[in-house]
Computed example of a mutant assay.
Amino acid sequence: MTKNPMPADWLAANRANWDGRVPVHVASDFYDVAGFVAGKESLRDFELAEVGEVGGKSLLHLQCHFGQDTLSWARHGATVTGLDFSRPAVEAATALAERIGADTARFVVSDVYGAVDALDGRTFDVVYTGLGALCWLPDIARWARTVAALVAPGGFLYLAEFHPFADTLAEDGRTVEYDYFHREATVWDEAGTYTDGELSPTAATVTVEWQHGIGEVVSALAAEGLRIDFLHEHDFTVFARFPVLKHDRVFRYPEGQPGVPLMYSIRAGKPA
């Protein structure tokens, strides 16, 4: 973990960094925009199975980046709204929607905590949050309160995330090196982003992240009156996080060797 000084405004620092990532990501092989436009699925199989049929439903994607997952839900029949704090991301998402003819897709500029006001108090059948989102938020109780306000009666939140236990492991993927209960901000000052193997240069290099335990997330949702339909811990992940992992469509520990949870998913419903 780094020892860099905390910026005066964590939200502005993170936004500047993600603004800079947008053109790099849109042009990257990692996101393969051309393939997506041609019909490539960006959602993971387990997400599609756990969310279920979305045809005719309204779906809000929080922290949507430039909209590939949002628009994949639209392809499955949902009426989608994507929300992200990066204006360049929202502009890229809007352009992508036009390219694929997703005429009813809407994208809104806002940070998560301002989502209720940004969306004029509207509620949704499904509120979806995808991989790598919660680490950018300092206050999970406030996040859960926001989510609960955005879910329509009878609707649900679906969250898919990287498992926080995996964040305790050293680079070998075997040794516990970091504290699972670390809750202070971690400040990184690193050029580049995760696309295409090599780190691509970005001008704004400082980011601030937080770790949130499984119990913290579940308890925050339950405290807002959402019913936990399931919490699934997955023995796979979607990228080569550790060298020990073997790839067969997904990445997991070799058969016969001890493994740890690498991802998790939660569905939490709001009573009708």
Rank of each mutant, 00 (worst) to 15 (best):
D117A: 15
D117V: 08
A118I: 01
A118C: 01
L119P: 02
L119G: 02
G121I: 04
G121C: 06
R122G: 09
T123Y: 05
T123M: 07
T123S: 08
F124Q: 02
F124R: 03
D125L: 14
V126S: 02
V126K: 04
V127Q: 03
L131M: 12
G132S: 13
G132C: 11
A133M: 11
L134P: 09
L134W: 08
L134S: 11
C135E: 12
C135D: 12
D139K: 07
D139T: 03
D139A: 01
I140W: 01
A141M: 04
R142G: 11
R142E: 14
W143M: 02
A144N: 02
R145M: 06
R145W: 00
T146P: 07
V147T: 01
A148Y: 05
A149S: 13
L150V: 01
L150K: 01
V151N: 00
V151Y: 01
A152I: 08
P153M: 00
G154K: 06
G154N: 09
G154V: 04
G155Q: 07
Y158M: 04
H163Y: 06
P164T: 05
F165G: 03
F165Q: 09
A166R: 15
T168L: 09
L169M: 15
L169F: 11
A170E: 06
A170R: 06
A170F: 03
D172G: 05
R174K: 15
T175C: 05
V176H: 10
E177Y: 05
Y178E: 06
Y178I: 06
D179S: 09
D179E: 12
Y180C: 06
R183N: 14
R183I: 01
E184W: 05
A185G: 08
T186N: 12
V187N: 03
V187S: 02
W188P: 04
D189S: 13
E190Q: 12
G192V: 05
G192R: 12
G192E: 03
G192S: 11
T193C: 15
Y194V: 13
D196I: 13
D196W: 05
G197W: 08
G197F: 09
G197H: 11
E198Y: 12
E198K: 15
E198S: 15
L199E: 13
S200V: 12
P201W: 08
T202E: 04
T202G: 09
T202Q: 09
A203G: 11
A204L: 05
A204C: 05
V206T: 15
W210Y: 15
Q211P: 06
Q211A: 10
E216C: 05
E216I: 13
E216K: 14
V217L: 04
V218W: 02
S219Y: 07
S219W: 07
S219G: 09
A220Y: 01
A220E: 00
L221D: 01
